[in-house]
Design a protein around this nucleic acid. Structure first.
Lengths: 100, 100
DNA sequence: CGACTTCGTAAGTGCAGACTTACCGTTCGT
DNA sequence: ACGAACGGTAAGTCTGCACTTACGAAGTCG
């Protein structure tokens, strides 16, 4: 359960929207739901998925739950594409080399 | 368009499998399909999505089509998560600061 | 303690999209 | 030129999952 959960999570457009709103700063569930084209329970369900993917963290403050971006999952994805990027470059260099 | 197509593409487990096999080196469609739990046409359909997301490139060689990782889409995703990673760190630093 | 807010979960519905089989175009070898 | 290999596309099926409404739990304030 590494990067796949995170990629699957961000594969959904609504989840990506929620996630990106959180990159601008912490928000409670209700605040997130307002301005989104889906109901508040839907947002809760999406947040659960994002949380399991370690892309967000939540904190209880009073009767509200404040969500923010979790660096852990983000770092995982960044490293993942960093590796692949390096591999792709190396493969390309090798291909150029073999142009006789 | 941009990173969304790429994220949506890699959200599917089969597509992620195909993509990761290609990171090891170029492969033809048939070679990809062998060893995958789905039919060859399914692989073709997935490749189409990956191609539209600029995550793979294809090249006709004889009657075969060789697919390889396209650096363009990969770089896009790497930069995307790089930004968010930086933002998340900054937000965290700010939060620590406010611990009176 | 009761009214109110905020949110998570249960249960049910509808649709996108990941599969399949069947078919056709293209390219190569003989 | 014919057969075979390779792969893209059409058409149809079916399952997962993104939604909804309804409800309940936990917390806050008077």
């Amino acid at each position: 359960m590494g990067t796949y959960g995170a990629l699957a999570a961000l594969g959904d457009p609504t989840r990506r929207l929620i996630f990106e709103r959180l990159t601008a700063g912490p928000l409670a569930v209700g605040e997130l739901a307002a301005g989104l084209p889906v109901s508040r329970p839907a947002v809760s369900q999406h947040l659960k998925v994002l949380k399991e993917a370690r892309l967000v963290r939540d904190e209880a403050v009073g009767t509200r739950r404040v969500y923010r971006v979790d660096p852990v999952g983000v770092r995982e994805l960044r490293d993942y594409f960093d590796d692949i990027w390096a591999q792709a470059l190396a493969a390309f260099a090798r291909a150029v080399e073999e142009e006789t």
